[in-house]
Design a binder for these strands. Structure first.
Length: 433
RNA sequence: UCCCCGAUAGCUCAGCGGUAGAGCAACCGGCUGUUAACCGGUGGGUCGCAGGUUCGAAUCCUGCUCGGGGAGCCA
Protein backbone atom coordinates (compact mmCIF):
# COMPACT_ATOMS: atom_id res chain seq x y z
CA UNK A 1 0.00 0.00 0.00
CA UNK A 2 2.29 2.69 -1.21
CA UNK A 3 0.60 4.19 -4.25
CA UNK A 4 -2.92 4.37 -2.84
CA UNK A 5 -1.84 6.32 0.26
CA UNK A 6 -0.01 8.99 -1.63
CA UNK A 7 -0.96 12.63 -2.04
CA UNK A 8 -0.42 14.04 -5.53
CA UNK A 9 1.25 17.41 -6.05
CA UNK A 10 -1.60 18.28 -8.43
CA UNK A 11 -3.95 18.09 -5.40
CA UNK A 12 -1.88 19.85 -2.72
CA UNK A 13 -4.13 22.93 -2.52
CA UNK A 14 -6.80 20.58 -1.13
CA UNK A 15 -4.41 19.68 1.70
CA UNK A 16 -3.61 23.20 2.96
CA UNK A 17 -2.47 23.00 6.57
CA UNK A 18 -2.19 19.20 6.57
CA UNK A 19 0.94 17.13 7.00
CA UNK A 20 1.34 14.89 3.93
CA UNK A 21 3.98 12.76 2.24
CA UNK A 22 4.91 13.32 -1.41
CA UNK A 23 6.57 10.48 -3.30
CA UNK A 24 8.66 11.91 -6.08
CA UNK A 25 11.97 12.94 -7.54
CA UNK A 26 14.26 15.91 -6.91
CA UNK A 27 13.94 18.25 -9.88
CA UNK A 28 16.23 20.97 -8.55
CA UNK A 29 17.73 22.17 -5.29
CA UNK A 30 18.85 25.56 -3.98
CA UNK A 31 20.71 25.67 -0.71
CA UNK A 32 21.71 28.49 1.55
CA UNK A 33 23.60 27.14 4.57
CA UNK A 34 20.82 26.61 7.06
CA UNK A 35 17.99 26.19 4.54
CA UNK A 36 17.37 23.91 1.55
CA UNK A 37 14.80 24.58 -1.15
CA UNK A 38 13.91 21.26 -2.76
CA UNK A 39 11.88 21.31 -5.96
CA UNK A 40 10.02 18.01 -6.08
CA UNK A 41 8.15 16.54 -9.04
CA UNK A 42 5.88 13.53 -8.78
CA UNK A 43 4.52 13.18 -12.31
CA UNK A 44 1.44 15.29 -11.58
CA UNK A 45 3.22 18.56 -10.93
CA UNK A 46 6.07 20.43 -9.26
CA UNK A 47 6.26 21.66 -5.66
CA UNK A 48 8.85 23.36 -3.49
CA UNK A 49 9.66 21.82 -0.12
CA UNK A 50 11.57 24.01 2.35
CA UNK A 51 13.88 22.20 4.76
CA UNK A 52 15.17 24.41 7.61
CA UNK A 53 17.97 23.32 9.98
CA UNK A 54 16.45 22.44 13.29
CA UNK A 55 13.00 21.71 11.83
CA UNK A 56 13.98 18.30 10.51
CA UNK A 57 16.37 15.72 12.05
CA UNK A 58 20.04 16.73 11.56
CA UNK A 59 20.95 13.60 9.56
CA UNK A 60 18.10 14.33 7.15
CA UNK A 61 19.19 17.95 6.79
CA UNK A 62 22.70 16.68 5.95
CA UNK A 63 21.15 14.26 3.44
CA UNK A 64 19.64 17.24 1.60
CA UNK A 65 23.18 18.62 1.17
CA UNK A 66 24.11 15.54 -0.83
CA UNK A 67 20.93 14.97 -2.83
CA UNK A 68 21.53 14.86 -6.58
CA UNK A 69 19.22 15.92 -9.38
CA UNK A 70 16.51 13.25 -10.03
CA UNK A 71 17.18 11.32 -6.83
CA UNK A 72 13.98 9.58 -5.73
CA UNK A 73 12.77 10.79 -2.33
CA UNK A 74 9.81 10.80 0.03
CA UNK A 75 9.22 14.22 1.52
CA UNK A 76 6.93 14.74 4.49
CA UNK A 77 5.74 18.10 5.74
CA UNK A 78 2.95 20.59 6.22
CA UNK A 79 1.38 22.18 3.14
CA UNK A 80 0.82 25.93 3.36
CA UNK A 81 -0.06 28.78 1.06
CA UNK A 82 2.85 31.11 0.32
CA UNK A 83 2.82 33.84 -2.27
CA UNK A 84 6.58 33.34 -2.81
CA UNK A 85 5.91 29.79 -4.11
CA UNK A 86 5.51 29.18 -7.84
CA UNK A 87 2.20 27.32 -7.55
CA UNK A 88 0.91 29.37 -4.59
CA UNK A 89 1.57 26.48 -2.19
CA UNK A 90 4.70 24.94 -0.76
CA UNK A 91 5.71 22.47 1.94
CA UNK A 92 7.53 22.99 5.23
CA UNK A 93 9.48 19.74 5.36
CA UNK A 94 9.63 17.72 8.56
CA UNK A 95 11.24 14.63 7.04
CA UNK A 96 13.16 13.56 3.94
CA UNK A 97 13.71 9.90 3.08
CA UNK A 98 16.02 8.78 0.29
CA UNK A 99 14.83 5.97 -2.01
CA UNK A 100 17.73 6.08 -4.48
CA UNK A 101 20.59 8.54 -4.86
CA UNK A 102 20.68 9.33 -8.59
CA UNK A 103 23.93 9.17 -10.53
CA UNK A 104 25.08 12.32 -12.32
CA UNK A 105 22.04 13.24 -14.40
CA UNK A 106 22.85 13.91 -18.06
CA UNK A 107 20.11 16.48 -18.67
CA UNK A 108 20.88 19.70 -16.83
CA UNK A 109 18.64 22.72 -16.38
CA UNK A 110 20.65 24.54 -19.04
CA UNK A 111 20.35 24.26 -22.80
CA UNK A 112 20.96 21.10 -24.78
CA UNK A 113 20.99 20.21 -28.46
CA UNK A 114 18.19 18.23 -30.08
CA UNK A 115 20.37 15.23 -30.92
CA UNK A 116 21.54 14.89 -27.33
CA UNK A 117 18.03 15.27 -25.98
CA UNK A 118 16.58 12.70 -28.40
CA UNK A 119 19.32 10.24 -27.39
CA UNK A 120 18.07 10.75 -23.83
CA UNK A 121 14.37 10.83 -24.67
CA UNK A 122 13.70 8.28 -21.90
CA UNK A 123 14.81 10.97 -19.42
CA UNK A 124 13.84 14.09 -21.39
CA UNK A 125 10.13 13.29 -20.92
CA UNK A 126 10.62 14.30 -17.24
CA UNK A 127 11.32 17.88 -18.34
CA UNK A 128 8.43 20.28 -17.55
CA UNK A 129 7.83 21.35 -21.15
CA UNK A 130 8.01 17.83 -22.55
CA UNK A 131 5.83 16.60 -19.71
CA UNK A 132 3.25 19.33 -20.39
CA UNK A 133 3.10 18.58 -24.12
CA UNK A 134 2.54 14.87 -23.49
CA UNK A 135 -0.23 15.68 -21.01
CA UNK A 136 -1.91 17.79 -23.71
CA UNK A 137 -1.49 14.82 -26.07
CA UNK A 138 -3.26 12.60 -23.54
CA UNK A 139 -6.08 15.14 -23.32
CA UNK A 140 -6.43 15.37 -27.12
CA UNK A 141 -6.79 11.59 -27.34
CA UNK A 142 -9.24 11.24 -24.48
CA UNK A 143 -11.30 14.25 -25.63
CA UNK A 144 -11.47 12.81 -29.15
CA UNK A 145 -12.60 9.41 -27.94
CA UNK A 146 -15.09 10.89 -25.47
CA UNK A 147 -16.68 13.02 -28.17
CA UNK A 148 -16.95 10.13 -30.61
CA UNK A 149 -18.39 7.68 -28.10
CA UNK A 150 -20.92 10.18 -26.79
CA UNK A 151 -21.97 10.86 -30.38
CA UNK A 152 -22.70 7.23 -31.17
CA UNK A 153 -19.41 6.11 -32.71
CA UNK A 154 -18.21 2.56 -32.01
CA UNK A 155 -14.49 1.92 -31.68
CA UNK A 156 -13.37 -0.69 -34.18
CA UNK A 157 -9.70 -1.57 -34.27
CA UNK A 158 -8.19 -1.96 -37.72
CA UNK A 159 -5.32 -4.40 -38.31
CA UNK A 160 -1.71 -3.19 -38.23
CA UNK A 161 -0.45 -6.01 -40.47
CA UNK A 162 -2.09 -5.68 -43.85
CA UNK A 163 -1.83 -7.56 -47.14
CA UNK A 164 -1.67 -4.55 -49.46
CA UNK A 165 -1.26 -0.84 -49.71
CA UNK A 166 -4.21 1.22 -48.59
CA UNK A 167 -3.84 4.26 -50.77
CA UNK A 168 -1.15 2.95 -53.07
CA UNK A 169 0.84 6.18 -52.95
CA UNK A 170 3.35 6.36 -50.12
CA UNK A 171 6.10 3.86 -49.36
CA UNK A 172 5.17 1.15 -46.87
CA UNK A 173 7.19 -0.87 -44.39
CA UNK A 174 7.36 -4.43 -45.65
CA UNK A 175 7.61 -7.42 -43.38
CA UNK A 176 7.46 -11.19 -43.66
CA UNK A 177 4.18 -12.92 -42.89
CA UNK A 178 4.96 -16.65 -42.82
CA UNK A 179 6.53 -16.51 -46.23
CA UNK A 180 4.20 -13.91 -47.70
CA UNK A 181 4.70 -10.17 -47.95
CA UNK A 182 2.82 -8.03 -45.46
CA UNK A 183 2.86 -4.30 -44.80
CA UNK A 184 2.53 -2.13 -41.72
CA UNK A 185 -0.72 -0.18 -41.76
CA UNK A 186 -0.81 3.21 -43.40
CA UNK A 187 -4.49 3.82 -42.55
CA UNK A 188 -7.40 1.95 -41.06
CA UNK A 189 -9.84 3.58 -43.42
CA UNK A 190 -10.66 0.69 -45.75
CA UNK A 191 -11.45 -1.55 -42.79
CA UNK A 192 -13.48 1.29 -41.26
CA UNK A 193 -15.59 1.37 -44.41
CA UNK A 194 -16.48 -2.27 -43.86
CA UNK A 195 -17.14 -1.60 -40.17
CA UNK A 196 -19.43 1.41 -40.74
CA UNK A 197 -21.68 -0.75 -42.93
CA UNK A 198 -22.00 -3.04 -39.89
CA UNK A 199 -22.19 -0.46 -37.09
CA UNK A 200 -23.23 2.85 -38.71
CA UNK A 201 -20.70 5.17 -37.11
CA UNK A 202 -17.26 3.83 -36.23
CA UNK A 203 -13.73 4.98 -35.57
CA UNK A 204 -10.32 3.47 -35.16
CA UNK A 205 -7.32 4.80 -33.26
CA UNK A 206 -3.88 3.43 -33.82
CA UNK A 207 -0.38 3.86 -35.15
CA UNK A 208 0.33 4.58 -38.78
CA UNK A 209 3.58 3.84 -40.59
CA UNK A 210 5.07 5.72 -43.52
CA UNK A 211 8.43 4.62 -44.88
CA UNK A 212 9.04 7.99 -46.55
CA UNK A 213 12.40 9.62 -45.96
CA UNK A 214 10.70 12.76 -44.74
CA UNK A 215 12.90 15.17 -42.83
CA UNK A 216 10.73 18.04 -41.72
CA UNK A 217 9.21 19.28 -38.49
CA UNK A 218 5.78 17.97 -39.60
CA UNK A 219 6.71 14.34 -40.24
CA UNK A 220 7.11 11.20 -38.17
CA UNK A 221 7.81 7.71 -39.50
CA UNK A 222 5.37 6.31 -36.95
CA UNK A 223 2.47 8.50 -35.88
CA UNK A 224 -1.02 8.10 -34.43
CA UNK A 225 -4.23 8.79 -36.23
CA UNK A 226 -7.88 8.74 -35.21
CA UNK A 227 -10.17 7.87 -38.11
CA UNK A 228 -13.99 8.13 -37.92
CA UNK A 229 -16.13 6.69 -40.72
CA UNK A 230 -19.89 7.17 -41.16
CA UNK A 231 -22.46 5.32 -43.27
CA UNK A 232 -25.20 7.42 -44.91
CA UNK A 233 -22.99 10.50 -44.62
CA UNK A 234 -22.18 13.03 -47.31
CA UNK A 235 -19.06 15.16 -47.44
CA UNK A 236 -21.18 18.05 -46.11
CA UNK A 237 -22.12 15.95 -43.04
CA UNK A 238 -18.48 15.02 -42.73
CA UNK A 239 -17.26 18.62 -42.47
CA UNK A 240 -19.88 19.60 -39.89
CA UNK A 241 -18.81 16.62 -37.76
CA UNK A 242 -15.16 17.66 -38.06
CA UNK A 243 -15.89 21.22 -36.89
CA UNK A 244 -17.74 20.00 -33.81
CA UNK A 245 -15.20 17.29 -33.08
CA UNK A 246 -12.09 19.43 -33.34
CA UNK A 247 -13.61 22.39 -31.50
CA UNK A 248 -14.52 20.10 -28.61
CA UNK A 249 -10.96 18.76 -28.44
CA UNK A 250 -9.45 22.26 -28.36
CA UNK A 251 -11.88 23.57 -25.76
CA UNK A 252 -11.31 20.54 -23.53
CA UNK A 253 -7.55 21.09 -23.63
CA UNK A 254 -8.15 24.71 -22.63
CA UNK A 255 -10.36 23.62 -19.76
CA UNK A 256 -8.40 20.65 -18.43
CA UNK A 257 -4.79 21.36 -19.45
CA UNK A 258 -4.66 25.11 -19.09
CA UNK A 259 -1.68 25.02 -16.71
CA UNK A 260 0.29 22.87 -19.16
CA UNK A 261 -0.52 25.25 -22.04
CA UNK A 262 0.68 28.14 -19.88
CA UNK A 263 3.89 26.20 -19.09
CA UNK A 264 4.35 25.88 -22.86
CA UNK A 265 3.79 29.67 -23.19
CA UNK A 266 0.88 29.09 -25.56
CA UNK A 267 -1.16 32.15 -26.57
CA UNK A 268 -4.53 30.92 -25.28
CA UNK A 269 -6.51 33.48 -27.26
CA UNK A 270 -5.52 31.61 -30.43
CA UNK A 271 -7.32 28.54 -29.05
CA UNK A 272 -10.30 30.22 -27.40
CA UNK A 273 -11.64 31.29 -30.81
CA UNK A 274 -11.69 27.72 -32.17
CA UNK A 275 -15.47 27.16 -32.40
CA UNK A 276 -17.75 26.17 -35.30
CA UNK A 277 -18.17 27.06 -38.06
CA UNK A 278 -14.78 26.96 -39.77
CA UNK A 279 -14.12 28.93 -42.96
CA UNK A 280 -14.34 27.02 -46.24
CA UNK A 281 -12.43 27.62 -49.40
CA UNK A 282 -12.76 25.68 -52.62
CA UNK A 283 -9.62 24.45 -54.33
CA UNK A 284 -10.40 26.89 -57.16
CA UNK A 285 -10.58 29.80 -54.70
CA UNK A 286 -7.38 28.66 -53.01
CA UNK A 287 -5.56 28.69 -56.34
CA UNK A 288 -6.89 32.19 -56.95
CA UNK A 289 -5.71 33.24 -53.48
CA UNK A 290 -2.20 31.97 -54.23
CA UNK A 291 -2.18 33.93 -57.50
CA UNK A 292 -3.27 37.08 -55.66
CA UNK A 293 -0.37 36.52 -53.27
CA UNK A 294 1.95 36.44 -56.25
CA UNK A 295 2.71 32.72 -56.05
CA UNK A 296 3.18 30.63 -59.14
CA UNK A 297 0.70 27.79 -59.15
CA UNK A 298 -1.04 25.79 -61.85
CA UNK A 299 -4.59 24.46 -61.48
CA UNK A 300 -4.40 20.68 -61.14
CA UNK A 301 -1.29 20.50 -58.97
CA UNK A 302 -1.39 19.58 -55.30
CA UNK A 303 -0.49 22.25 -52.75
CA UNK A 304 2.98 22.11 -51.25
CA UNK A 305 3.66 22.90 -47.60
CA UNK A 306 4.48 26.58 -48.31
CA UNK A 307 1.20 26.91 -50.29
CA UNK A 308 -0.79 25.47 -47.39
CA UNK A 309 0.93 27.91 -45.03
CA UNK A 310 0.04 30.84 -47.28
CA UNK A 311 -3.62 29.77 -47.31
CA UNK A 312 -3.96 29.00 -43.59
CA UNK A 313 -2.23 32.20 -42.47
CA UNK A 314 -5.25 34.11 -43.87
CA UNK A 315 -7.51 32.73 -41.13
CA UNK A 316 -7.70 32.58 -37.32
CA UNK A 317 -9.46 29.21 -37.41
CA UNK A 318 -8.75 25.95 -39.19
CA UNK A 319 -9.81 26.28 -42.83
CA UNK A 320 -11.38 23.62 -45.04
CA UNK A 321 -10.04 23.43 -48.56
CA UNK A 322 -12.60 21.50 -50.60
CA UNK A 323 -12.90 19.91 -54.03
CA UNK A 324 -9.35 18.97 -55.02
CA UNK A 325 -8.54 17.74 -58.53
CA UNK A 326 -9.35 14.05 -58.89
CA UNK A 327 -5.91 13.17 -60.19
CA UNK A 328 -4.01 14.36 -57.07
CA UNK A 329 -6.24 12.49 -54.60
CA UNK A 330 -6.72 8.85 -53.57
CA UNK A 331 -8.54 6.38 -55.83
CA UNK A 332 -11.53 5.87 -53.51
CA UNK A 333 -12.79 9.48 -53.42
CA UNK A 334 -16.25 10.28 -54.82
CA UNK A 335 -16.19 12.55 -57.89
CA UNK A 336 -18.35 15.66 -57.89
CA UNK A 337 -21.36 14.74 -60.12
CA UNK A 338 -21.33 18.19 -61.77
CA UNK A 339 -17.55 18.33 -62.21
CA UNK A 340 -15.93 14.90 -62.47
CA UNK A 341 -12.48 16.51 -62.58
CA UNK A 342 -12.76 17.26 -58.84
CA UNK A 343 -13.66 15.04 -55.87
CA UNK A 344 -15.87 15.51 -52.80
CA UNK A 345 -13.11 15.91 -50.28
CA UNK A 346 -11.56 18.42 -47.92
CA UNK A 347 -8.29 18.98 -46.17
CA UNK A 348 -8.41 20.88 -42.89
CA UNK A 349 -5.46 23.23 -42.51
CA UNK A 350 -4.58 24.33 -38.98
CA UNK A 351 -3.94 28.03 -38.34
CA UNK A 352 -0.53 29.65 -37.81
CA UNK A 353 1.03 27.61 -40.60
CA UNK A 354 0.76 24.21 -38.92
CA UNK A 355 -0.50 22.59 -42.10
CA UNK A 356 -2.88 19.75 -42.76
CA UNK A 357 -4.27 18.05 -39.66
CA UNK A 358 -7.28 16.31 -41.25
CA UNK A 359 -7.75 14.66 -44.63
CA UNK A 360 -11.33 13.68 -45.48
CA UNK A 361 -13.63 12.62 -48.26
CA UNK A 362 -16.84 11.00 -49.34
CA UNK A 363 -16.00 7.51 -50.64
CA UNK A 364 -17.08 6.01 -53.94
CA UNK A 365 -20.11 3.80 -53.32
CA UNK A 366 -20.71 2.66 -56.92
CA UNK A 367 -19.17 -0.73 -57.74
CA UNK A 368 -18.37 -0.10 -61.41
CA UNK A 369 -16.80 3.31 -60.79
CA UNK A 370 -14.66 2.00 -57.94
CA UNK A 371 -13.49 -0.99 -59.98
CA UNK A 372 -12.59 1.33 -62.86
CA UNK A 373 -10.59 3.62 -60.53
CA UNK A 374 -8.69 0.68 -59.11
CA UNK A 375 -7.72 -0.47 -62.60
CA UNK A 376 -6.54 3.08 -63.42
CA UNK A 377 -4.34 3.00 -60.30
CA UNK A 378 -3.00 -0.50 -61.09
CA UNK A 379 -4.29 -1.87 -57.78
CA UNK A 380 -4.49 -5.69 -57.54
CA UNK A 381 -8.21 -6.49 -57.60
CA UNK A 382 -7.75 -9.82 -55.79
CA UNK A 383 -6.31 -8.07 -52.68
CA UNK A 384 -9.27 -5.69 -52.66
CA UNK A 385 -12.04 -8.21 -53.29
CA UNK A 386 -13.54 -7.68 -49.86
CA UNK A 387 -13.44 -3.90 -50.36
CA UNK A 388 -15.38 -4.18 -53.63
CA UNK A 389 -17.87 -6.49 -51.87
CA UNK A 390 -18.92 -3.51 -49.72
CA UNK A 391 -20.33 -1.98 -52.94
CA UNK A 392 -22.27 -5.18 -53.77
CA UNK A 393 -24.21 -5.68 -50.56
CA UNK A 394 -26.21 -2.62 -49.60
CA UNK A 395 -23.81 0.10 -50.67
CA UNK A 396 -24.60 3.60 -49.36
CA UNK A 397 -22.92 7.00 -49.56
CA UNK A 398 -20.40 7.17 -46.73
CA UNK A 399 -17.68 9.52 -45.60
CA UNK A 400 -14.89 9.75 -43.11
CA UNK A 401 -11.72 11.50 -42.09
CA UNK A 402 -8.39 11.00 -40.37
CA UNK A 403 -6.98 13.34 -37.71
CA UNK A 404 -3.23 13.26 -37.15
CA UNK A 405 -2.69 13.31 -33.38
CA UNK A 406 0.85 14.69 -33.22
CA UNK A 407 0.23 17.50 -35.71
CA UNK A 408 -2.91 18.45 -33.80
CA UNK A 409 -0.98 18.47 -30.51
CA UNK A 410 1.81 20.53 -32.10
CA UNK A 411 -0.73 23.13 -33.16
CA UNK A 412 -2.62 23.19 -29.83
CA UNK A 413 0.59 23.48 -27.82
CA UNK A 414 2.19 25.90 -30.27
CA UNK A 415 5.24 23.64 -30.60
CA UNK A 416 7.91 23.80 -33.26
CA UNK A 417 8.21 20.11 -34.04
CA UNK A 418 6.02 16.97 -34.04
CA UNK A 419 8.88 14.83 -32.70
CA UNK A 420 8.26 16.25 -29.21
CA UNK A 421 4.52 15.48 -29.41
CA UNK A 422 4.98 11.71 -29.10
CA UNK A 423 6.72 9.96 -26.19
CA UNK A 424 9.26 8.03 -28.26
CA UNK A 425 9.45 9.45 -31.79
CA UNK A 426 10.47 7.27 -34.71
CA UNK A 427 12.34 9.48 -37.17
CA UNK A 428 14.42 8.87 -40.24
CA UNK A 429 17.78 7.60 -38.85
CA UNK A 430 16.42 7.29 -35.33
CA UNK A 431 14.89 4.25 -33.64
CA UNK A 432 16.65 4.64 -30.22
CA UNK A 433 15.53 4.73 -27.46
C1' U B 1 16.87 11.41 -53.50
C1' C B 2 18.03 16.81 -53.83
C1' C B 3 19.46 21.89 -51.66
C1' C B 4 21.54 24.70 -47.40
C1' C B 5 24.02 24.52 -42.33
C1' G B 6 26.87 22.14 -38.60
C1' A B 7 30.51 18.56 -35.64
C1' U B 8 35.97 21.74 -30.08
C1' A B 9 35.49 19.37 -22.16
C1' G B 10 29.73 15.37 -19.60
C1' C B 11 26.34 19.69 -21.77
C1' U B 12 25.88 24.62 -24.51
C1' C B 13 29.29 27.30 -27.18
C1' A B 14 33.69 30.87 -28.32
C1' G B 15 38.38 30.44 -30.78
C1' C B 16 38.92 30.65 -37.81
C1' G B 17 47.10 29.79 -39.61
C1' G B 18 51.40 30.51 -34.16
C1' U B 19 51.12 27.04 -26.35
C1' A B 20 43.10 24.60 -25.96
C1' G B 21 39.10 28.76 -23.70
C1' A B 22 34.27 30.34 -21.08
C1' G B 23 29.53 29.24 -18.74
C1' C B 24 26.86 25.20 -16.78
C1' A B 25 27.32 20.13 -14.73
C1' A B 26 30.75 17.18 -11.23
C1' C B 27 33.84 17.59 -6.66
C1' C B 28 35.47 20.83 -2.07
C1' G B 29 34.13 25.18 0.88
C1' G B 30 30.61 29.54 2.21
C1' C B 31 25.70 31.56 2.79
C1' U B 32 18.37 30.95 6.85
C1' G B 33 13.70 32.86 1.28
C1' U B 34 16.14 30.66 -3.13
C1' U B 35 13.17 31.04 -8.25
C1' A B 36 17.90 28.13 -14.62
C1' A B 37 19.90 31.12 -6.86
C1' C B 38 24.61 33.25 -5.69
C1' C B 39 30.17 33.60 -4.11
C1' G B 40 35.35 31.24 -3.84
C1' G B 41 38.33 26.94 -5.25
C1' U B 42 39.62 21.92 -7.88
C1' G B 43 39.71 18.24 -11.64
C1' G B 44 38.26 17.69 -16.81
C1' G B 45 40.30 17.56 -24.28
C1' U B 46 42.82 11.92 -29.95
C1' C B 47 39.22 19.88 -31.62
C1' G B 48 33.94 13.71 -35.79
C1' C B 49 37.22 10.22 -39.14
C1' A B 50 40.90 9.83 -43.25
C1' G B 51 44.06 12.28 -46.47
C1' G B 52 46.29 16.91 -48.43
C1' U B 53 48.51 22.20 -48.31
C1' U B 54 52.05 24.61 -44.80
C1' C B 55 58.04 25.68 -41.07
C1' G B 56 53.44 25.15 -38.27
C1' A B 57 46.27 23.14 -38.97
C1' A B 58 40.84 23.11 -34.21
C1' U B 59 41.48 26.98 -38.05
C1' C B 60 42.63 26.32 -45.28
C1' C B 61 41.37 22.18 -49.23
C1' U B 62 39.25 17.11 -50.63
C1' G B 63 36.59 12.73 -49.36
C1' C B 64 33.76 10.07 -45.78
C1' U B 65 30.60 9.52 -41.34
C1' C B 66 27.01 11.51 -38.17
C1' G B 67 23.45 15.33 -37.05
C1' G B 68 20.10 19.76 -37.98
C1' G B 69 16.79 22.74 -41.32
C1' G B 70 14.05 22.66 -45.90
C1' A B 71 11.91 20.29 -50.67
C1' G B 72 9.13 16.06 -52.41
C1' C B 73 5.46 12.55 -49.94
C1' C B 74 1.68 13.04 -46.47
C1' A B 75 -1.58 13.36 -40.87
Amino acid sequence: MWLLQSVRIADIREHDGEEVTIKGWLYNKRSSGGIHFLIIRDGTGFMQAVAVRGEIPDDQFELCNNLTQESSILVTGRIRADKRAAGGFEMSATGVELVQLAEEYPITLKEHGVDFLLDHRHLWIRNPRQHAALLVRDEVISAAEDWLRSNGFVKIDAPILTPAACEGTTTLFETDYFGEKAYLSQSGQLYNEAACMAFGKVYCYGPTFRAEKSKTRRHLIEFWMIEPEMAYATQEDNMVIQEEFLSYIVQRCLAKRRQELITLERDLSKLECIVPPFPRLSYDEAVELLHEEGKEFEWGDDFGAPDEATISMKYDKPVFVTGYPTKVKAFYMQPDPDRPEIVKCSDLLAPEGYGEIIGSSERIHDLDLLAARMREHNLPEEAYGWYLDLRRYGSVPHSGFGLGIERTVAWITGSEHVREMIPFPRLINRIYP
